[in-house]
Each structure stands twice: as C-alpha cells, then as structure tokens.
C-alpha cells in the first residue's frame, strides 16, 4: 500500500498532528513501508477467527457507585497552560 503526500496530510489532520511540509514525503515513504510490512497479515486465513481485543479472558469488574474523589482543582490546574476563574481556556470554539 503506497500512501501519497496527500494521504499523509489528511491522516495528520484527523490526528491533529502538525507535520512539516518538507517532511511529508518522508512520512509517506516510511508509512508505506510499514503498511507493506503490515500487509503480510494477509498471508494467513482468518475466516471465522474471533478478534482478540484483550490478552486475558476476563469480564469487566464493576465499581460501587460511591463518591471517592474530592476537589483538587487548584492542584491540577497548576499544570494547565491557561486558566481563569477555574476554567481551562482555549482559543475560541465556534459552533
């Protein structure tokens, strides 16, 4: 599978990942190579095989419905790039 520079740009946008224009071709080449490697999977028949999402065959454990967390806003927000009045600030969201 060969990815074009255009493919790389659209995937990068989906992932909101800035890629330097000058590097796009190199990414396209690397990713195409990885996809070629990946496509070796096609060599084995998997009809009827159950997909395996987890290594362990366990059910989800359930938590009791209890409030166990307390307010740590100030502690957490020390890490934030921009806050005001307890809110995280981001560039204007337009709907």
């Amino acid at each position: 599978m060969a990815l074009t520079a255009e493919n790389v740009n659209s995937i990068a946008y989906l992932a909101r990942l800035g890629i330097d224009e000058k590097d796009v071709e190199a990414y396209a080449k690397d990713l195409s190579g990885i996809l070629d490697l990946v496509e070796q999977m096609g060599s084995v028949e998997t009809e009827g095989v159950l997909p395996m999402a987890h290594p362990t065959d366990q059910p989800q454990r359930l938590r009791e419905d209890e409030v166990t967390e307390h307010d740590q806003r100030d502690y957490f927000q020390k890490l934030a790039p921009q806050v005001e009045a307890g809110l995280y600030l981001v560039p204007k969201v337009i709907e």
Partner: peptide
Amino acid sequence: KRRILIGTY
C-alpha cells in the same frame, strides 16, 4: 508521529 499516523490510518 509515525505511530499515531499509522494507527489513525
């Protein structure tokens, strides 16, 4: 970045 791109794809 390579891995995020491959995974996204």
